[in-house]
Nucleic acid binder design. Sequence first.
DNA 1: TATTGTTATACTCTATAACTATA
DNA 2: TATAGTTATAGAGTATAACAATA
Lengths: 164, 164
Amino acid sequence: MSQPPASLTPTQLGAYFAFTEVSSLLRPAVEKQLRDAGALSYVQFQLLARLGDATDGHMRMTDLADGVVYSRSGLTYQAQLLDQRGLVTRSPSPDDERSTVVAITAAGRDVLTAVFPGHIEAVHDLLFAPLSDDDAGDLARILGRVSAHLRAAPPRSATRRRKT
Amino acid sequence: MSQPPASLTPTQLGAYFAFTEVSSLLRPAVEKQLRDAGALSYVQFQLLARLGDATDGHMRMTDLADGVVYSRSGLTYQAQLLDQRGLVTRSPSPDDERSTVVAITAAGRDVLTAVFPGHIEAVHDLLFAPLSDDDAGDLARILGRVSAHLRAAPPRSATRRRKT
DNA sequence: TATTGTTATACTCTATAACTATA
DNA sequence: TATAGTTATAGAGTATAACAATA
């Protein structure tokens, strides 16, 4: 029960505080750009972007939920909104009739196209303007390692169901 | 009107994606720990932590709002909740009777004490477990630079008011 | 007249559990 | 019986604008 209490070095603490601060300043700025340029919430943008990247532009609901780190019901809600705007379609999977396949539409790709340049610009100005190329490389390497570590944990949609 | 469109190098794009992914995986995990250990939302924890660090444990509402990147009304709401639980007190400032001074109470410090070890442990396990000391140093340096850059922009509470 | 903070209100988002349908 | 997804519902959080009080 009484493990030695974990601790952080001053450097680690500084890195953590800087991370949270950047995160909480960057996120609202990006969200505002997405809202203004395409009336998209951050989650909706992530969903569209993921679908745009996917083969043939479609994905199962569960895979989408895992990718975006999201609960199932939350995804249903967001997918409904995108569906109503005609940015995605939802249809039962031919393979497994329990599954719903979400596909991005031409209108959905148009919105992505409309939103992307401003998104890139915001990220450029806010995140990378003060960084050298080496810094960006270090950041990619370090955070890539962390994200691989975090993704090794069980996905979100799994823990939502009872574990028997 | 037609500037050359900003762009990101593949490395920058990778760094950005990794950042958002780490952010969206780390945040819910930390939030859960705070909820479980002290029934605190993330914002409430930030507020308490800031007050705990402040001289004499008190701060003006506006300064708190700026530090935490938060709207005024949102801060009032959260401060009310903390006040109701007896974790902070609010009282008019002697200097400027328009201002409200928020002060952390002994009970508030107790909650911080209860929550800290688990918080540190979570951050250690999730963020720093896969990183070397050098990595942590690089991360602190790079993100510190970005956060300084972002903080140079006008604070949130200012833009909430009309600019005349 | 400008600033500090609160309030009223409406809305978005998220989670839980119950439910349907398919495997 | 387990899984995929939806729905119902309820709650937390956020923002906007109007407001009162002080500078």
